[in-house]
Write a protein that binds this DNA or RNA. Structure first.
Lengths: 222, 222
DNA sequence: GGTTTTTTTAAGCCAATTTTAAGTTTCAGC
DNA sequence: GCTGAAACTTAAAATTGGCTTAAAAAAACC
């Protein structure tokens, strides 16, 4: 589990880093908002801890920017404030939890575990490269832009991505996506592959679906 | 919003059910741990309230079992204890919040609202663009003008806004807003979407609710 | 108990999606 | 390079599903 801590006070940052590393987390530290945001955007973390009051860019703004990029990484705030108003303000900016300073390390740890648990199990999205598919909401994203698909288009793409790196034969596709179990000489698959390719291309995600002539199709990560 | 209460004292259970239904939640009650766990596993709730001390299976064990199944539903504990030790124990078991008995109904309500807010998605407040929803007073404002909604209209709009930027499927809507859990070919949703759109349009807030054909609806900020 | 408001049902219409079908292009093997 | 099979593209037909309206049923209010 990889964590990012954005905290300017070296004392607190060091205390957190050491304590969390003892718990076998991989911990990065950033000492201001700008550098923290930089880290968050260029690396993949399992959780981010942000102090409310940090230099250059405020904690709340960092949080907002991270959410704006489409990331759903769990974010926890460290704050000296704990009026209901401030808490709500933080939650609105996209935070998942907050903890008031001074805090017991034990409590922080327990709350981190709650967040990690809930995030990991809640995220059942499928991926292929920068393409993200969420079967729960029927949404597809390429990087940060959403691709709107019809139900059949979605079902086909979902099947291909679930079986990425594997060749999907035409007969398997027609069975799994169309639920047709007898031989038929339909060309729906061709048509829908065309639809999908067009929409993916338009979103900047060209060349994802490759043809295996005489057999079927395949999606490769690279 | 659909809640489950697991509480063996009929007095408290009834008091909670009535009070929460007055606030337009859909409320189910279970009177022991076993039946509560059963409900939790076979239905989808937005939040679960569990008493620490209940018969057959303890509250803490019910909580653990729910988490073990992979569910991330917010769980709140009712408890007579509130030492740090007990709180940590509850958090470890997978709870999101706890409230000490005896409690004020108002406080419970506020905590429920915080959980619902923070859970559904990071940047979720009950706002969508210039639309403002107040679950406490059941009022809706667009900019400065109030929009008068019936209870069902309000519940539907609230559910959509709580899940803004996410697709709300027809089956989820019928479960969480109408509390209907079997397949039915009703068209109430369509009708209420029409009602809402008409009232929103009339207030100058057109185009808020978008249709995802074959799937459901979504509210987007922009 | 009657009146008003809210909720649900049902039916016709329209638009988006899905399928069919036909013409065009690409590719592998000769 | 030729040839035939497979895949691609396009347009039009068929189907499905959502929107709207009106009226019936249920609930809330006096």
């Amino acid at each position: 589990m990889r964590l990012l801590i954005i905290e300017d006070e070296p004392g607190i940052a060091g205390f957190l880093k050491d304590g969390l590393e003892e718990e076998y987390f991989a911990v990065d530290v950033a000492y201001d908002g700008k550098s923290g945001l930089d880290h968050a955007m260029t690396n993949e973390y399992d959780l981010i801890i942000i102090d409310w009051m940090i230099p250059v860019i405020s904690g709340i703004e960092v949080c907002r920017q991270i959410r704006k990029s489409g990331s759903v990484v769990p974010i926890m705030f460290l704050t000296a404030k704990d009026t209901l108003e401030d808490v709500l303000f933080g939650l609105e900016a996209g935070a998942n939890d907050y903890i008031k300073k001074p805090f017991a390390f034990e409590e922080l740890l327990a709350r981190i575990r709650v967040q990690l648990r809930s995030k990991h199990q809640g995220d059942d999205s499928l991926r292929a490269g920068h393409l993200n598919i969420n079967p729960g909401t029927h949404q597809v994203f390429y990087e940060t832009s959403e691709i709107t698909l019809t139900p059949k288009e979605f079902a086909l793409l979902e099947y291909l991505v679930r079986n990425k790196e594997k060749v999907c034969t035409r007969s398997r596709i027609i069975e799994h996506v169309w639920d047709i179990h007898f031989d038929s000489d339909t060309s729906v698959i061709d048509v829908y592959i065309t639809f999908l390719r067009r929409k993916l291309e338009h979103a900047g995600c060209g060349n994802l679906i490759q043809t295996i002539r005489g057999v079927g199709y395949i999606i490769r990560e690279s």
